[in-house]
Design a protein around this nucleic acid. Structure first.
Lengths: 357, 357
DNA sequence: TTGTACGCGTTATCAG
DNA sequence: CTGATAACGCGTACAA
């Protein structure tokens, strides 16, 4: 049982008095081999419990069948779900997924990229960290001729495909929904504006206000970190103002939760006096006693599509510089925290649209 | 910039008129080389932008510096946190983490193991799936001379190390806590009893009852799936009984949540009439309006320690059959759902203890 | 201290 | 259809 010594194609070739090349051909389904010897070889290979040495193969072919995924943190529902999607899509194709975390630190990002390139992965999926501004280290990936696919958090780079959410639309539909609930003074909790996702949500918010002739009030926009406490403090700030908001659109669920906690403490009724909507559809939002409206980012689908884009890029005989931008549609899940009309909960969604370039 | 052709030690050797062996020695810090040539080689290596080919290296050494992690699902807070712990501990040592999911299906588990062994990983970390009963496929890992470390969900196998929670104690301290709240009819929602973790929690529960002279009532034990609805239905069942429970100890947080929802629907006051405690300390438990008491499993620490155990095993020159069992202590976090005395929230915890064998 | 030569396991090229 | 041989890039015993 314990065959410490692995059997190689040479072992098989010796036993059968054929050359190693013939064995290799049999194993690789080469057309230039008689089916008789082929069957024989395959049979004895199985008998001898032969396993291909993927390392030798990789050394020869230059392909490892490993891909890397770089995310800020793996134990966040959104990211782990995207990774799950990638894994499920790629495993059937023989790929393995190597994961790396950056802790939102661009220095770690550089290290992880170098480490991945060192180990010869066949591609990299990534969501950039908050502190990433320059793209030189990302360019290294391309210079190395390694396919790169951004998901969710991307940087503008020519020749790089990406799968993202239509965050502008996300911000727009949330704001529109709040307006239709009768809200006229809608505050916005924004995330780190270095990230496109947050500027886009912000822009969507402003666009909706404009479309519905509501004057934009800069005092009602606060940039917060993604902590619960940050949401609570933001409410404290806002309620010092002369005219308090009648709605809050937070770019993150944790802030929304913090805001709700603080509003409750102040005996402000939700959604009657103030409506609240978050973003990300974190699992907890629907478990709350007062379920929180939120925007679902379909992370599983995002991962699957990112994987598909990668596969297309790998298999395409065409130029490597093909660039595909897939934009997924956000789904607004209306729950009690913003539902003044007690509608039946239903997603405001559309099908995903893709736009090749 | 785009050097599609990677530079090898031969390129360096040619340029410097030395042998490739000398270059190799310089790069590997061999003692049998003059510091003059060594410095020269290192310098030009950097100039020529030389990168080691890890594949060739791996082929030669038989070590890939990749490890595999097999879990039921990656996008569950507990598992993704363990993986995060492993990743953070192993990255500084040059290892990469490859992740695989089984979807709680033993057939997938077999496939993933085979795939990992194929790619020559240096070790496997795993939490077995619910449907895993036989251990033949796990034995294959050992026969292949690959280190295996179980975490959380293990199987009894000689020669395999594991890092687990003291689930018996977890069950015990929860039950004891409920008794001290004045509860006398404590129900238990158990998980799949094929898994040790759930039988141990169950045993701990029974032991505490016994120690405090409370008669065990089998009608108060229900085996449920880990869904919210399952917790609600279990309450329905229990409240059909003549004597309803005055406490619920659920082996999972989602069931506990479902139970609470159903109890509220029935206008039963928590914790005054019924105390509820869950298990796992899922993030949502502390966000609820009525925060749910739960047992923390310190997943990050679990991952870190699993990684340490692996490193010890790899580096130990001693027998490979060393077997180390690390048992972590559970932390009961008392929150409002079971706190009749309004104590200040504090963990009932002790330091981790380890027991080598 | 340095160079030579070989092996890790596979695949691809070129003859036969 | 099959066999011999080189090559992928590196490390290392052995010889010099």
């Amino acid at each position: 049982m314990k065959d410490k010594e692995k059997t190689t194609i040479y072992d098989i070739s010796k036993k059968l008095n054929v050359s190693a090349a013939t064995v290799s051909r049999a194993l690789n389904n080469s057309p230039k081999i008689s089916s008789a010897t082929k069957d024989l070889i395959l049979k004895t290979a199985k008998e001898m419990n032969y396993k291909q040495n993927r390392l030798a193969q990789a050394l020869k072919s230059g392909r490892t069948n490993n891909v890397g995924v770089i995310v800020p943190y793996i134990n966040r529902n959104f990211f782990s779900s995207v990774i799950r999607g990638i894994e499920e899509e790629l495993t059937p194709h023989g790929y393995h997924v190597i994961i790396c975390q950056t802790h939102e630190n661009v220095e770690n990002e550089k290290k992880q990229i170098n480490a991945l390139l060192d180990t010869q992965i066949d591609g990299i999926f990534m969501s950039v960290s908050k502190t990433t501004r320059q793209t030189d280290h990302l360019q290294k990936i391309l210079d190395n001729n390694t396919p790169l696919v951004f998901f969710d958090r991307k940087k503008e780079m020519t020749g790089v495909s990406s799968v993202t959410l239509d965050d502008f639309k996300g911000g727009y539909i949330v704001t529109e929904h709040l307006i239709k609930q009768g809200c006229k003074k809608i505050a916005h909790f924004s995330g780190d504006l270095n990230l496109e996702i947050y500027t886009n949500r912000y822009e969507g918010y402003k666009a909706a206000l404009k479309d519905y002739d509501i004057t934009f009030n800069p005092d009602h926009v606060i940039q917060v970190s993604s902590k619960i406490e940050a949401g609570a403090s933001a409410v404290e700030e806002l309620w010092k103002l002369d005219d308090c908001p009648d709605a809050i659109f937070s770019a993150g669920d944790h802030n929304a939760l913090g805001a709700i906690q603080e509003l409750k403490r102040r005996k402000i009724r939700i959604p009657e006096e103030v409506c609240v909507v978050g973003f990300s559809n974190e699992p907890f939002t629907k478990y709350m006693e007062l379920p929180i409206s939120s925007v679902d980012q379909t992370p599983l689908v995002m991962g699957q599509i990112a994987a598909e884009v990668f596969l297309e890029q790998i298999n395409g005989k065409k130029s490597r510089t093909i660039e595909k931008k897939v934009v997924l549609n956000p789904e607004l899940l209306i729950r009690n925290s913003s539902d003044r009309k007690k509608q039946v909960q239903k997603p405001v969604a559309e099908k995903a649209k893709t736009s090749g370039v």
